[in-house]
């Protein structure tokens, strides 16, 4: 999950981060992303105001492993809380209540469940932020013109300079041929 996270900006001598193409709608972007990938580019990322199904695959993302982290967190939380309650009520502070068994495991289930949910939720949220590389105060893509509308109504596709096939002039021409309404250079 962490290894496959969004390509980090490779520091280039030229200070060039990549080339950003701007699209008016989601369908054009989706088609453009697929064609960019088919053309052999690998370091590409799309930026959109809404989640678009299929776009993650179009930019070459094979899916997140976040669910496994959350599963592991949930299991850890559950086993820890169950073991902890057992230890508390049998070893650390056993109490005889009407002769009921000290290891009365059904009574431990509610807190075990809460422990599972709590740790799984922490893993989901902080795992998500870690996988996305957040928080981060600045990112080169924010230098792209009109990128402030990537969170409103415009759709962007960025080919990064770190891509082995990247060539500023050729890549710009290629993106312009995909229906982009503007293509611009993005500096670090």
């Amino acid at each position: 999950m962490f290894k496959r996270s969004a390509p980090s900006p490779a520091p280039e001598a030229s200070g060039l981060y990549g080339v950003m193409a701007e699209f008016a709608d989601a369908d054009t972007l989706l088609a453009a992303a697929s064609r960019t990938r088919d053309a052999g580019y690998t370091r590409i990322e799309a930026y959109t105001p809404i989640p678009i199904h299929g776009l993650d695959e179009a930019v070459g993302f094979r899916g997140t492993r976040l669910p496994w982290l959350i599963f592991a967190g949930g299991m850890t939380g559950a086993s820890f809380m169950f073991g902890f309650q057992t230890w508390v009520n049998t070893v650390a502070y056993p109490m005889n209540i009407g002769g009921r068994p000290e290891f009365s495991w059904p009574a431990f289930i509610p807190v075990t469940f809460e422990g599972m949910v709590l740790l799984a939720a922490f893993c989901a949220v902080f795992g998500l932020f870690a996988a996305c590389g957040l928080p981060r105060l600045h990112h080169p893509v924010f230098n792209a013109p009109r990128f402030d509308r990537a969170s409103v109504d415009l759709f962007f596709l960025c080919v990064e300079a770190a891509d082995p096939k990247f060539d500023e002039a050729a890549t710009t021409r290629f993106l312009e041929g995909l229906g982009a309404q503007a293509v611009s250079r993005v500096d670090n």
Binding site: A33, E45, A46, D56, V117, V141
Partner: peptide
């Protein structure tokens, strides 16, 4: 936090939201 709305981020985001919803549902009942 510096959210950019990248396609990879949205994929993880939707997955995390779905699982959080799946966790919250039994939680609220419990």
């Amino acid at each position: 936090l510096g959210w950019r709305g990248g396609a990879r981020d949205w994929n993880r985001y939707e997955m995390a939201s779905l699982i959080l919803a799946g966790l919250s549902t039994p939680l609220v009942l419990s």
